[in-house]
Simulated assay, not measured.
Amino acid sequence: MISRCLPLLLLLCLAPTCHAVPTHFTYRPGETAQDMRSAYTTALLALALEKTRADYGDYRLDPAPAMNTVQALQALKKGSYPNFMLKMSYIPGLEQAGMLRGRLDVDLDVIGYRVCFTRRALLPALARVHDLAQLKGFSHGQGAGWVDNLILEDNGFKVMTVEQYAELFHQVASGRFDLFCRGINELEGEWQTYRQLAGLAVEPDLMLYYPLPRFFYANPQDAAGLKRVEAGVALALADGSLQRLWQQYFGPSVAFAKPAQRRLFRLTNPLLPPGLLAPDQPRFDPILMKFVAPAPQAPASRP
């Protein structure tokens, strides 16, 4: 009897109503309830998975536990969560450890443009900064495990690291270090969250830039999941839905930073090899305030 029913069961499983188990994906949430840095990344993952639903099937997208960058990198390397898609700046050591990296800069280069939090008492001294040598007289604070530490130190800056993201705002306001520089896409939301801190200020005239592409990384066990996400990101770039999402999440903060009105200091990122970015990779130019075609890539050079 069972054998006579098998053809019918196979036909039913080929019907549109027969769904496979959804593929489980995991994203990194903010470190605290006030930390909104992951909002765009989470929305982009959902967009990429929707774009690929027809070819890859249904999905679940759930948060991992709250964690700092060091903990997130440990979870990635251990494969602690199913299809954990971790957005990170390029870190050679991750690939040397066998981790997989997507090819597309999903932030479109915006986070490399940095505007700094500082303490209000330091604003007159910063207003007198007109060259990079003068700027190097001010110390920076950055988070533990952030690639910015290596970039700033290589460019001649003194850097102090802090374990907890939220503590960076308190320590720059209190004067433990002079500058806490943030991507212009992050600035407004963080200012609204921490503006009540005594002495905290946004420096109004200066902007740093160093190339800081952000990619999705995955554990080798999740190669198929990363392939799906990258395919969805490419589709979203091609039809403009990624750019619209980018504008929704980042546009107000970029406008708040007023990048075209600032003195721009360019630094190098010694970690980037030539040819890292996909040749069709667009980027956002905050001086022109628009998305532009890929720029020619050259080997990294020291200042």
Rank of each mutant, 00 (worst) to 15 (best):
D62I: 03
D62Q: 11
P63Q: 07
A64I: 02
P65T: 12
M67H: 07
T69E: 06
V70Y: 00
A72D: 00
L73G: 01
L76M: 09
L76D: 06
K77E: 15
Y81I: 02
P82H: 08
F84Q: 04
M85A: 05
M85H: 04
L86C: 06
L86N: 02
S89F: 05
I91H: 00
P92E: 06
G93L: 10
G93A: 15
L94Y: 03
L94R: 12
Q96C: 05
Q96S: 13
Q96V: 12
Q96F: 02
A97F: 02
A97M: 13
G98P: 08
M99Y: 02
M99I: 15
L100K: 00
R101M: 13
R103K: 13
L104Q: 11
L104R: 15
L104Y: 12
V106T: 11
V106H: 08
L108P: 11
D109K: 07
I111Q: 04
G112W: 03
R114K: 14
R114M: 00
R114N: 06
T118F: 03
R119V: 03
R119G: 03
L123F: 01
L123E: 05
R128L: 08
V129E: 09
H130R: 15
D131G: 11
L132A: 12
L132H: 10
A133P: 01
L135G: 01
L135K: 00
K136Y: 01
K136V: 01
K136S: 09
G137P: 06
S139T: 15
S139Q: 09
G141V: 01
Q142K: 12
G143H: 01
G143E: 13
V147W: 06
N149W: 03
L150W: 09
I151C: 06
I151K: 00
